[in-house]
Design a protein around this nucleic acid. Structure first.
Lengths: 107, 107
DNA sequence: TCAATAAGTTACTTTATGTAACCAAGTATA
DNA sequence: TATACTTGGTTACATAAAGTAACTTATTGA
C-alpha cells in the first residue's frame, strides 16, 4: 500500500527534536536567559543523567551553546543559539493552547 | 534549593501531551481529515500496538474522537475534536520553523 | 584533615517502544 | 464446504530510553 500523505522530512525532523522528552521544557527555560546545569536540573525536575544527554544532543543540533567559565568550581553556562531562540513562537502557541484548552483538573 | 522559574502546570501538561512520541505526528495527519486505523498506521509508520495506545490516550484527552461504522469488516474513523483542531497553529509554527531552520542534510 | 561545590558519570532498575505472530467476525472465492 | 481475505486491534517477547542514587574530579575554605 502507498502512503496517502507524505510527511515533509524537515517537519518530521523538527517534530522528532521537539517531541524528545524534556527538550521543549529545556528550551522554554532557556528562553528566560542563560542557565547553569544545576539550576536547570532543579527547576525542570530532570535527572542529571538525562539532562546531560539532552544538552549534548541539543548542542549538536545547534539549538544551544555551552560556555565554560573556569572558576572554582567550574561554571558552565547554557544558552540558546539563534536557532534555539527562533523556537519561541512555537512555544508561545503551545502556551496559548494550554491556557485555552487544558483545564485545572487535568494538570 | 528553590525552583527559580515555576513552570505553569497547564503549559507543562500541554508539553507532556505533545512531546509524547507520535502524538504530534498523529494530530498532523488528522488535520487533513478523518482517517482509519490502517491508513494512519501506514502513513505515519507507527506500530499497531503503540498506535492503539496513543489513540486511546488521545481520545481520553479529548483530542480525537472515534466513530464505529458497522460495515464488513468494521470500519473505524478517527478524527480531531475541536480541542484537537485547535492545535493547528502550534503545528503550523513547527512547520514554519522546520522550513527555516532544518537543513536538507540533517533530515 | 574534612567538608563543600559544580558538573557530570556510572551501575542498576523501571518504563516505553518495536516486532511479529495471532484473533474475531463476516464475506468472497475455489 | 473449506479456505483465504479484510479490519482493527491484542499478545508475548526483545530492545531502547529514562529514572535513581551513589560516585567522581578538581579546588577551596573551615
Amino acid at each position: 500500500m502507498m502512503k496517502e500523505t507524505d510527511i515533509c522530512p524537515r517537519f518530521e525532523k523538527a517534530i522528532s527534536i521537539l517531541s524528545q522528552r524534556w527538550t521543549a521544557l529545556l528550551i522554554h527555560q532557556l528562553l528566560t536567559g542563560q542557565k547553569r546545569f544545576g539550576s536547570i536540573k532543579t527547576s525542570v525536575g530532570i535527572s542529571g543523567k538525562v539532562l546531560s544527554e539532552r544538552l549534548k544532543e541539543m548542542e549538536k543540533q545547534g539549538i544551544i551553546k555551552r560556555k565554560v567559565i573556569p572558576e572554582t568550581p567550574v561554571i558552565i553556562e547554557y544558552s540558546l543559539t539563534e536557532k534555539g531562540i527562533s523556537l519561541e513562537p512555537v512555544l508561545r502557541e503551545v502556551e496559548k493552547w494550554s491556557q485555552e484548552w487544558i483545564s485545572a483538573d487535568e494538570t
